[in-house]
Every structure is written in C-alpha cells, then in structure tokens.
Nucleic acid binder design. Structure first.
Lengths: 218, 218
DNA sequence: GCAAGGTGTCAGAGTTATTTCAGGATGGCG
DNA sequence: CGCCATCCTGAAATAACTCTGACACCTTGC
C-alpha cells in the first residue's frame, strides 16, 4: 500500500503541509529542502514517487529530475510549477517529469495526480467506460456497439479526461491545462470536442454546458 | 470577466496600490481597512475573491477568514503574511484560506495567484437543496422529482441565491448587487423569477413578498 | 525528401442567453 | 369600488458564447 514518496521543496511551510497531507493519505514520506539533499535521499531509499518544486535555489528542479532519471529512477515524478511558467512545464516534461501541478495547488489535486502516477506505473493499459463506450488508453481506440473507432492522440486524451470524471464538467481551461500544458487557444477544445462527436457518431454524448465546459451524458 | 475582489488591508498605501493594480487588471475592486468593514462589505456584495492581510489591529485576518467561511463564502481567499510569520501561514490555511503570498510581494504574483484561485473555484461542485429541488452549481442543472432541468447561468445564480438562505426574503436590490454587480434595471430580477417559475414547473415555489422581494416556499 | 495524416489557429456563421421596454395584470388600501 | 403602486410577461434588440470550414504548419512513416 504505502508508496514511498519523496518531497523536494525549499519553502518550509509548503513542505510541511505536503508532508502532513501525504502522510495522512497513507504515503510513506521523506522530504528534502534542496536538490543536493534530494539526490542523497533518493540514493538510499529509491522512492516510488517524487514531488518536485521546479523553482529552488541551487540545483533547480529540472536538474534534479534529470539527475534522478540518469540514476535510474523509474517512479513517477510530479512537478510543482508557477502558474505563468508555461516554459518550465514543457521543459520539465522533457527533463523526465511525468506530470505537473500549478502552484498554488489544492492538496487534493496533488494526491489525485500521485495516485494516477502509481496506477500508470503498475499497468500501462487501462480501459475506461461510460455510457456504452470504452476507451483503451494505450491503443487510443474506442469500442462502441461492437464497432472499433480509432482516435488520434489528442482526441484520446480529451476523451480520457472526460471519462475519468464522467459526472463533472470539464472546463476549457482545465482541458488546456492538462492536455496542452497551458499553451493553446481556448477554441482548440471545441475543435476536438467536435471531432469526437463526429467520430463517436453520437452528438449528444458530449454535452455542452453553456459558459462552463463539457460533460459526458448517457 | 471582472471577478469581484475584496481587499482587506489596514495599511493605506499598500491598500491603494492593490486597488489600482487589481483594478487595472480587470478585477472589480472593493476594499476595507479593517475586519469589521470587510465583513459588512462581504455581506452585501459577495466577492469572488478576498485578499486578506493577516496582521491587522482589531479583528485579525485569521478571524475574518473564519467568519467569512462561516457566512458561506465560497470564493478563494489569498492571505498576505509577513516573511517570518511561518506559523500564520499554516494557521491561515487551516482557517480556510486557499493560498498565501509573503510580504513584501510582487504585485504580479498576487495577480497570478488570484487568477489561479478563480480557476480552481469554478471546478468546485456544490449541490443545494430545498423543498424537493436540488441545484448543481457547476452544471447549472436542477433535479426535481427525478427529472433534470437545465438552467442558464443567470437563472442558476438567482436560484442559488434563494437556496443559500431559504427562509429569508431576497430583495431585488440584493439580487442585483450580487448577481449583476449593481448594474441593471430592477425589472431584470422579475424577469428571471418568471423564468425560474416556468422552468421549475411550480409557480408557487418562489413566492412574491409584496414590496420587498422573493422567498422560497415549500 | 515526399506524402499522408495530425495539430493548432483564425474568422465568421450560427446559436443561445441576456437585458430592456412597454403595456397589461394584480394586489393593497381608502 | 377605484386608484395607485407594484408586479408580470411577450417581443425584440443586443450581447455572449459555440461551432465549423479552411488553411498552414508540423510530425511520422515510407
């Protein structure tokens, strides 16, 4: 159960908050205040997960991430980035991070992402279903009434986001944040929703919630 | 789109700087110099966001935050704390604040955090019930006797206002202040009450209190 | 290095929501 | 009962949001 998570964060209150929250969530927590300490800790207690602040004095989060990967870290890395630092996020993913959360973050979001990362590590293949459709997240195909529909990468990502929370509205902002890493025009979401509606052959499956976003409907 | 932000700060120069900067950023700004005034202001113009100084004479920022939450404030609260007051930050988050910025702060950071808070706020789902109807405040839908009724944004806002205080009269002035930011013809409230009565299929649910306003009734 | 398909942007058409206005209906009161 | 203030509602203008086709760029496979 208790996955080992390593927290790397120089801001003490934030770090303590993470320690407490993740500890309460059942994770086995270690933490470090700077990059050097993080590398040392990772050395002798290979963590399953790493929560990593990008902006730190000394060794930056990006560097730490790269070094950890070089040392053979296979676990998931979750980056904490500033809201306006779109650049960092892209470079972070290049550096080997698996996901990121924008500061300031809701602790619940961090927990959710961490759980998603452990899941992803265990079994690469995943099938998500709702209202008669099933998405295979590795092959990017959808089963619907015996028929198989092939999706492109983006189409699949968007559908995945909708399927993971079938009863909540997905806002354009959130979609762009999660799929396009904050770097895209809002309209792009509409564009892909349109494609999904056509490909899935059911314009009513994805309902538009006016002024808010999109939601799956049976 | 002009979120309403309430600034609570006893230091006049700092307060004015915040007013100007946030105003220029497109926020609709109200401000108060002490806790008491803040609570009074929040009363009639429920802000979407609150920027709150922790260290104030009289009612402390922590107290103000707690009181606001008790009064049903759902918007984001951003605290301003001193650099060395590590304790305050943790306690602030406990008191219901969503984030904090350390003084002295870069105004850009405050703006960035506020934008982050508005985004987070929108995804937060809530369900309000009274007399057999349930409103979902994110999808703007009402459940009533197994049926689902879709509302528009304004309709939902008005119903939400009624549902949050089911046994008190909602005056047209209050409704216009809180939904239309004070800028609309009085008649607009009547117009939306009419729509709600028709859409909800029960003309008696919202009762007119002659010369005063409207109230929910079972 | 070419072709095919995927991706992101834009602009404008199309759709839906919002707000106002004006006149009729209704309730309160002498 | 009759008057006045208040409330209700249809229609129409305005504003906001969503959808879609066309296009350019990029990536991938061959």
């Amino acid at each position: 159960m208790g996955e080992r998570v390593l927290i790397v964060e120089d801001d003490a209150p934030v770090r303590r908050m993470l320690e407490r929250s993740l500890g309460a969530e059942g994770f086995e927590v270690r933490s470090a205040a700077d990059g050097g300490a993080a590398l040392a800790l990772a050395e002798d207690s290979a963590p399953d997960l790493v929560v990593l602040d990008v902006a730190m004095p000394g060794l930056s989060g990006l560097d730490v991430c790269r070094r950890l990967r070089e040392k053979g870290l296979t676990g998931g890395v979750l980056m904490l980035t500033a809201r306006d630092a779109v650049e960092d996020r892209v470079r972070g993913l290049d550096a080997g991070a698996d996901d990121y959360v924008v500061k300031p973050f809701a602790i619940a979001e961090v927990v959710a992402r961490l759980h998603a990362l452990t899941r992803r590590g265990r079994d690469r293949s995943e099938r998500l279903s709702f209202a008669g459709i099933t998405l295979d997240t590795t092959t990017n195909t959808v089963e619907r009434g015996g028929k198989t529909i092939e999706l492109t990468a983006r189409e699949a990502e968007l559908l995945e986001l909708l399927l993971r929370d079938p009863r909540t509205v997905l806002s354009r902002e959130t979609a762009i944040e999660r799929i396009w890493h904050g770097a895209a025009v809002e309209n792009v979401v509409d564009r892909y929703v349109a494609r999904l509606r056509r490909k899935l052959g059911d314009p009513l499956l994805i309902r538009t919630v006016w002024g808010v976003g999109f939601i799956l409907e049976a």
